[in-house]
Amino acid sequence: MTTINIVFTHPFAKTPKYTFGEQVAIKSNCNSKKWATGQITGLRLDYDSVNTWNYTVVFDYPQGFCEEFTEEDLAAVDELVCSQLLFK
């Protein structure tokens, strides 16, 4: 398998919180146990703000539906599992 390294070189951009292939949960107003999950398949730096990353997420649905989210809309699946264990 070939490893591809992608480097973002903007001098003021912060490192993205999530990376390609990472499993995330999409935050919503319902109980966190019901949040949809998916995998990061793309990311881009917002044109208007150097430190706003937008993530393309393919949902874990058979249809493979995808949508773009900001960092505030997402939670790492590991964080989601840990918070569910703490509040049981």
Rank of each mutant, 00 (worst) to 15 (best):
M1F: 03
M1P: 09
T2G: 10
I4G: 00
T9V: 14
H10T: 02
P11H: 09
P11L: 04
F12N: 15
F12A: 15
K14P: 04
K17D: 09
Y18L: 07
T19V: 09
E22A: 04
Q23V: 06
Q23P: 08
S28I: 12
N29F: 14
C30P: 06
S32V: 05
W35T: 05
A36P: 01
A36N: 10
G38P: 08
G38S: 04
T41W: 04
T41S: 05
G42Y: 08
L43M: 12
L45G: 03
D46W: 07
D48C: 06
D48H: 09
V50C: 12
V50K: 09
W53P: 03
T56L: 10
V58G: 02
V58N: 06
P62I: 04
P62Q: 07
G64Y: 09
F65L: 09
F65C: 00
C66G: 04
C66S: 15
E67M: 03
E68Y: 00
F69I: 07
F69L: 07
F69Q: 04
T70W: 01
E71I: 02
E71P: 01
E72A: 11
A76M: 04
A76H: 06
L80D: 00
V81T: 05
V81L: 03
Q84D: 01
L85A: 11
L85N: 07
L86V: 04
F87W: 07
K88L: 14
K88M: 10
K88I: 11
